[in-house]
Amino acid sequence: MGLLTILKKMKQKEREMRLLMLGLDNAGKTTILKKFNGEDVSTISPTLGFNIKTLEHKGFKLNIWDVGGQKSLRSYWRNYFESTDGLVWVVDSADRLRLEDCRQELSALLLEERLAGATLLVFANKQDLPGALSKEQIQEALALDEIRSHHWCIIGCSAVTGNNLLAGVDWLLDDIAARIFTTD
């Protein structure tokens, strides 16, 4: 067994991932995080700053960073880019008026060098609302098909009911794991 093999094995053993959750304000980032962690979601306030949760899922240790999406906080997003393995972009599917804002913010993020290696998961949130756009409509509105720089996937979900959250995170983990922790 060579030294390199040992190094690789060590890295596999840690199996730690850093996920960064971003999106416009009122998209439901904190609600997704809390719901995923099994906490009460009825008393969530707009995030002034950020939340971090560390949790175990599928044998991975996940560090999830949820950073507030208010306009005045967006300039601080870049402070959280470093060593991000996965980017979770949360969209309020019922907020038609700001979809263009949403597209612009996302495409600016994807140009960011420090996020270059990260896998992108788009949550088309609030599918439980009657006026929500479908995930296909969101996919078109955000021009996701034009993304070539990142692995991406869009999943329709509802943070309030918890529907599809697991499916999204599982896809993200599988994609990141395939990239970082390559089996020998």
Binding site: I44, S45, Q70, K71
Partner: peptide, 26 residues
């Protein structure tokens, strides 16, 4: 409401019932 998010608003009176928090920005 559960949450109130107010942006770019001037000289407005809000009679509010909010169960979590209200925020203002700009």
């Amino acid at each position: 409401c559960q949450q109130l998010r107010t942006h770019n608003t001037q000289d407005t009176r809000v009679y509010l019932h909010v169960t979590s928090r209200a925020i203002i920005e700009d």
